[in-house]
Amino acid sequence: MSTARHSPFHSAAAHAILILYTIIALFPVFVIVVNAFKSRKAIFREPLALPDAESFSLIGFETVLKQGDFLLYFQNSLIVTVVSLFLVLLFGAMAAFALSEYRFKGNTLMGLYLALGIMIPIRLGTVAILQMMVASGLVNTRTALILVYTAQGLPLAIFILSEFMRQVSDDLKNAGRIDGLSEYRIFFRLVLPLVRPAMATVAVFTMIPIWNDLWFPLILAPAEETKTITLGAQVFIGQFVTNWNAVLAALSLAILPVLVLYLIFSRQLIRGITSGAVK
């Protein structure tokens, strides 16, 4: 049984399943990007066809760049996402290390309390969050979005990273303590490099909801100077008329950072997801 679990067949099967899932998941992305380079008539006539000499059009991208400040929206989304992701990974990893490494009274209850954030959507507290931001003077600021997204991503990050950190050898950490390393150096130099696959997994699954979110930018930062790219794309969607060329072009440009992040962390992501399946 042990040999079967460690056989190359199981590892190859897990990778094949992930590749198949990736192809299925990227199909809607393919449809969006393809139709972004077609005329309006071609979009509705043959939505799955590739653009040709007759249907090719850049009117959507021209509209996006001319109407509204798309570059500012893109910058706001990038700043909010990158800063939130950094804070989630940093504080999530530190909290996970504390929960998995140290035994103290209330350790289990603290873990359960943090896990509640996974089961209870943060949007249920939208009214209270809005009141808090108004009282703090943070409405229509990127700081408000960063604070909310950091709080939203921490429970899942702590839950995943704590499981991986429990697998780090105690002998390695004790050897570091014997050599005189502080707990911070043990955390940053010994533990974090060993949980890079888990960090990459958390990074990808944390970034996508933040980048694509419309709810909190609409509630907390709807001003023109703080709009995110997802909120900014809504200007092309009207109650009676929708500029589909512009919408698809804006979505195509918004997809790029997510794809770049996935390509950068793809190997670590696959290792993080399959590590429990192929051991």
Rank of each mutant, 00 (worst) to 15 (best):
V195H: 09
I146W: 08
I270K: 07
P28S: 10
A16N: 01
T206I: 02
S77G: 08
A223S: 14
F104L: 09
G276C: 09
P222C: 01
S266D: 04
L261G: 01
L99E: 07
L214S: 02
L220C: 02
F159C: 10
F216T: 00
G153R: 08
L109Q: 11
L85T: 13
G117F: 04
I120P: 09
E225P: 00
I59Q: 15
A96W: 13
L251F: 00
L130P: 05
V202Y: 05
P8Y: 11
S2Y: 12
L78H: 09
G153K: 08
Y21A: 15
L218G: 04
V88D: 05
T143K: 06
F61R: 00
S39L: 07
R45N: 11
V204A: 01
T228C: 01
F97L: 10
Q131S: 08
G117Q: 10
W211H: 00
E183A: 13
A175Y: 04
R177G: 01
W215G: 02
L256I: 15
Q75H: 10
F44A: 14
T150I: 00
S266K: 10
V82E: 04
P8A: 10
Q131Y: 12
G276H: 05
M199V: 15
Q268D: 13
R271I: 12
L18K: 09
L261M: 13
E54K: 13
F27N: 00
S39F: 07
V64I: 02
R103Q: 10
A250K: 00
T108N: 10
T150W: 01
P28Q: 09
T3S: 11
S39I: 04
I229S: 10
F205K: 11
Q167W: 08
F216Q: 01
D69Q: 03
M119G: 05
L20W: 12
A277G: 07
I158K: 14
I186C: 09
